[in-house]
């Protein structure tokens, strides 16, 4: 049995459905928890990304300057970066605003004469990008969301020291 590895999960511009799917692994979570220690995640109370993480699962696309800063820092401190789900992989629904740019989207949301807030909230990028357009990604896991089985398979393979292959297993959407 190998020693415990560190695992982080990150939530960028996505619906958190991939995280729900992660939780959907049910009792397999317990099995994995003996081999992984979850060091950073929206699901745990840890505010600072550790200096060294073995595996980071990224949900969501890169949509704001905050996402951009985060993902760069995460990449720097992660050994195996996993793009989890269609938003991280393709931009998916998050990137649908790329057809018109962020302007019309903000106008639609703040249509009651209010100005879109500029303080205290991250600025939107002109273009929503998949994670691999911004930093190198090691493993791609398609799905909206990827099934719990797929996520389990990915993590189990990584634990075994193999690069998971998902050909014929996980599809977009």
């Amino acid at each position: 049995m190998s020693e415990t590895k560190t695992l982080a999960t990150v939530w960028l511009d996505g619906c958190s459905g991939c995280h729900m799917s992660l939780l959907d692994m049910d009792e397999r979570l317990i099995e994995l928890s003996s081999q992984f220690s979850l060091v950073y995640s929206p699901l745990v109370d840890q505010k600072i990304f550790p200096d060294h993480v073995d595996v980071t699962l990224v949900e969501g696309a890169v949509a704001s300057d905050d996402d951009l800063r985060k993902i760069r820092k995460i990449r720097e401190h992660t050994r195996v970066l996993v793009s989890l789900g269609d938003c991280a992989l393709t931009g998916n629904v998050s990137a649908m605003r790329n057809q018109c740019g962020p302007g019309p989207v903000l106008l639609r949301v703040y249509s009651d004469g209010q100005k879109a807030p500029s303080m205290g909230v991250p600025a939107l990028l002109d273009r929503v990008q998949p994670v691999h357009e911004v930093v190198p990604v090691d493993v791609f896991v398609p799905g909206c969301p990827p099934s719990a089985d797929t996520i389990y398979r990915v993590l189990a393979e990584l634990l075994a020291g193999r690069v998971p292959t998902l050909e014929g297993v996980a599809h977009f959407g």
Binding site: P130, H132, P142, L166, G168
Partner: peptide, 23 residues
């Protein structure tokens, strides 16, 4: 969708090229 199925069968897990996002 046949396109979606092809991606699954051919093992296309992501797109290396920038999306065009035409209107």
């Amino acid at each position: 969708c046949e396109l979606q199925t092809l991606a699954l069968r051919l093992g296309m897990t992501h797109v290396e090229m920038p999306y065009q996002y035409p209107q």
